[in-house]
Design a protein around this nucleic acid. Structure first.
Length: 200
DNA sequence: CCCGTGATTTAT
DNA sequence: TAAATCACGGGG
C-alpha cells in the first residue's frame, strides 16, 4: 500500500495557514452550504498539552486524529456542541487543525434555520460549534475522508496561499488548562476579518 | 459573569 | 463505579 499524500500531509501549522481563505463546503439533501475559512487553530500532537492526543493518548473519541491527513475529526463536547478538525500529517501523528470560524457565503437561509439563535450573519459561523451547527456537521461525519467525500470538503479559492501580512497569529482560545501551551501562537486568522470568533 | 448539558476521561 | 472535565455558546 503506497503512503497517502495530500495537501493535508504537511505539519498542522503549515496546513492551518494554507486553510485560511479556502472554502469549506457541506452538501446536505443536495444543497450546498459553504463559507470561507477565516480562523483556525493548530494542535500539535503528543507534545501539545492542549491537544486531545497529548502524551500519545489513544481513546475511542480521538481515534480519528491518528488517521492520515485529510480525514475529519468531529467530537462532541459540553453535552451539546460539535467541533470539526481536519487531520494533518501522516497516519499516527495525531495532529490536526480546528476550524473555528468561516465567513458564510452559500445557503445562508438554511444556516439560519439550523441556528435560530443567531441574530446576525456575523453570529452564524463565528465559533467552532457555531459553524458545525450552521452546516449540520455532527459525529456522523467523524473519520470521513474530506479528500473523497461529496458531503464535506474544501474548495480552493486562490491558487496562492494568503500572504503572511494578511494573517494574524495569536494564542489559542479556551485551552487555559494547558498552561504554557495555551500561550503558544497557534491560532491563525485573517487580519481585519469581521467573521472570526470573539476570543474569550 | 454564570450556567446548561451529557459524553468522555480520569480517579478511586 | 463515581467524579471531574470540557478545543463552547447564550443570556444577563
Amino acid at each position: 500500500m503506497p503512503a497517502r499524500f495530500t495537501a493535508f500531509s504537511a505539519d498542522p501549522i503549515t496546513v492551518a495557514r494554507r486553510l485560511l481563505g479556502q472554502r469549506l463546503v457541506r452538501v446536505i439533501n443536495g444543497q450546498r452550504l459553504a463559507g470561507t475559512i477565516v480562523e483556525v487553530e493548530a494542535y500539535l500532537g503528543a507534545d501539545d498539552a492542549a491537544a486531545h492526543t497529548y502524551r500519545g493518548r489513544r481513546t475511542a473519541r480521538n481515534a480519528a486524529m491518528y488517521l492520515p491527513g485529510g480525514h475529519a475529526y468531529v467530537y462532541f463536547t459540553y453535552g451539546m456542541h460539535h467541533c470539526l478538525n481536519i487531520v494533518c500529517g501522516k497516519a499516527d501523528e495525531g495532529v490536526a487543525v480546528l476550524l473555528r470560524a468561516i465567513h458564510p457565503t452559500e445557503g445562508l437561509k438554511r444556516m439560519h434555520r439550523n441556528r435560530p439563535s443567531a441574530k446576525r450573519e456575523t453570529d452564524l459561523c463565528s465559533g467552532p460549534a457555531k459553524l458545525t451547527q450552521a452546516l449540520a456537521i455532527d459525529r456522523s461525519l467523524n473519520e470521513i475522508d474530506m479528500c473523497a467525500s461529496r458531503s464535506l470538503f474544501l474548495e480552493r479559492l486562490r491558487s496562492r496561499a494568503l500572504p503572511p501580512s494578511r494573517i494574524l497569529c495569536t494564542r489559542r482560545i479556551g485551552v487555559d488548562y494547558a498552561q504554557e501551551w495555551a500561550d503558544r501562537p497557534l491560532r491563525f486568522l485573517i487580519k481585519d476579518t469581521l467573521w472570526a470568533s470573539r476570543g474569550r
